[in-house]
Design a protein around this nucleic acid. Structure first.
Lengths: 347, 347
DNA sequence: GTGAAAGCGCTAACAG
DNA sequence: CTGTTAGCGCTTTCAC
């Protein structure tokens, strides 16, 4: 039923090995026989069995894409769709396939990674998330299995190839921007406090505030989840402050969406009462109401570079791979304005 | 270097075939030897080579997930993340892996599908989108390769297993809801007019309007893209009408987001000037500003059922598979209200 | 430039 | 219940 390399060989009057060489376009085969064999392959509508190939080959031409546990709220972040677009663009071009690795919880994800790696289903791995004490990273490192991380590692920074933005710098820029626009009392709302992104963006914010002589109290730093309830809690914590901030730095657009909506419920309007600047410039940022002022972190490129990196790591294992910092850019839209009643600042 | 089934066999003093049977947990092996072999597998940290397995087996325990071309704007629709969550939930439980199939354009997607199918990398396929004259569906059908479609097929409905909502009924409900709330002049804004979802939702809308004695002119039916410009065009077309509608049925939450935002720019406020009801109840629907009144189509379940269907199709090919209609539910939130100035209707 | 033959790591009759 | 043996479909030395 299934037509194999032998069928092609027979019909083309060559040996199976010759057909194999034609498939991999070996230079040791004459153009003439290549043409002949290819013609037969077409006639027979032959397609190589990739499992057999991988087995003989020890190469799968696929890479594993590790996503956060599907039950995590973060799974829905448009961030992932966009990284995947970037990854796909390059890997498709290089004819690599993508294996989708996730699970309902962290344990499951790890099990799947191990099964996939040891089962030789993939040649390399792209980690689309990392958290503190990530056993997956440890596993891959110990087994010297090729992988790259989108984001920044918590430890062994020197040993891990990662693709990331300079989140600290981006956050400094954002804060500077707000300060330049007359804001002095600024709050910070972040997602999961254990994520390095959150930490770095917070640090950039705090440092910049301090450098400009503004203080930030603990109550003005809030961590919350990506739900409406999360937004609600964050806002009510904000409302308890004796003086409302005139601006908020929010670490993610989805978060910002929730915050804005809840603020509006309290008839606090954005940006006239409070300015908001968020991060990621998600696809809906410009569709939001008002459109979000957000830091474009080039998610697509993050994915593209990750793909490029892992593939070159697979194909040239000896080359030393450098981690990559992808540039960012603040996109000013409708959620941020100058604070007019502070003329002294514009001096 | 790599440790194989033979190593395990030798160390456990059994034949390789016995080890193989232990791996697949064959009932023909005694508990005692199973324990013995498993112990050795642990000691040696053995993991089966899945390619070898698939080759000998003619089964991969993986299924291919076909996404729309990555360059399509629809790729970003949160819809996909949520279906995938549903698919993952079931397939993980059944220990199936997911192969990610997409490309930069339709041609590429099709090529990848063929390569993956003929390369025997997957046992079945879940199509996450379909369009008119879809050659992928034809290919799979002709080759009798197991697949299910999330959505509704354009032709050969009888021959294709699909998982879908009753979009026509849902749309009728939505329109009825608006009419019940006093709206008489209602517009319709849809995404890609070639998609069957769009068509069915439009049909439900039109039929309901007609049945209630309201007319819908062509200018009140608009098709647009998922971008801010799309929203802008749609709104400006709306503004050209001599009389503004008091409500709009929008086929997708993302679209609704854009429309609302552009309306606001024109100081037309939602819902006080115009009510909006959209579809899908995307994850951000409740985070939006105002929160979206939207039809919950149970995206997660759509994915879950698709996964269940394809896996049972793979494992019991003779069973006849029935297509599944997943129920929907209108979730009323902040974008829709009663039109007060029409007392006559409430009689 | 091409062929013959061994083998990748596993499973599946068939025997016993 | 377990072992022997012959592949699964491809690649890769090693010859010639």
């Amino acid at each position: 039923m299934t037509i194999t390399i032998k069928d092609v060989a027979k019909k083309a009057n060559v040996a199976p090995s010759t057909v194999s060489r034609v498939i991999s376009n070996s230079p040791r085969i004459s153009e003439r026989t290549k043409r002949k064999v290819r013609k037969v392959m077409d006639e027979l509508n032959y397609h190589p069995n990739l499992n057999a190939r991988s087995l003989a080959n020890r190469s799968t031409k696929s890479i594993g894409l590790v996503l956060p546990p599907a039950l995590d709220t973060s799974f829905h972040n448009p961030f992932f769709a966009e990284v995947i677009r970037g990854v796909t663009a390059y890997s498709n071009q290089k004819e690599y396939s993508l294996y989708f690795i996730t699970g309902n919880n962290e344990k499951e994800v790890e099990q799947t990674v191990i099964k996939t790696v040891r089962g030789r289903r993939v040649d390399g791995i792209i980690l689309l998330y990392s958290k503190e004490n990530d056993t997956i990273i440890d596993y891959l490192n110990e087994n010297k299995f090729p992988f790259v991380l989108v984001g920044k590692p918590y430890h062994s920074i020197e040993d891990i190839t990662y693709i990331d933005n300079d989140n600290y710098a981006a956050s400094r820029e954002v804060t500077d921007y707000l300060i330049d626009h007359g804001h002095q009392k600024i709050a910070f709302i972040g997602g999961d406090r254990n994520l390095l992104v959150t930490k770095n963006r917070l640090r950039g914010f705090q440092d910049t505030m301090l450098l400009n002589g503004f203080t930030v109290s603990d109550e003005e730093i809030i961590f919350t989840s990506f739900t409406r309830d999360g937004g609600r809690n964050a806002v009510s914590q904000l409302l308890e402050l004796e003086e409302l901030p005139s601006a908020i730095v929010v670490t993610d657009d989805v978060l910002a969406l929730g915050i804005i909506s809840v603020l509006q419920e309290h008839t606090i309007s954005v940006p006239s009462d409070i300015s908001i600047v968020s991060f990621n410039n998600a696809i809906f940022a410009e569709l939001a109401n008002p459109p979000l002022t957000s830091v474009d972190i080039n998610i697509y490129q993050l994915g593209y570079e990750a793909s490029k990196n892992i593939i070159s790591k697979i194909e040239e294992p000896d080359e030393i791979e450098k981690s990559i910092i992808v540039p960012h850019k603040l996109i000013v839209r409708g959620t941020s304005v100058k604070k007019e009643n502070l003329e002294l600042v514009s001096s």
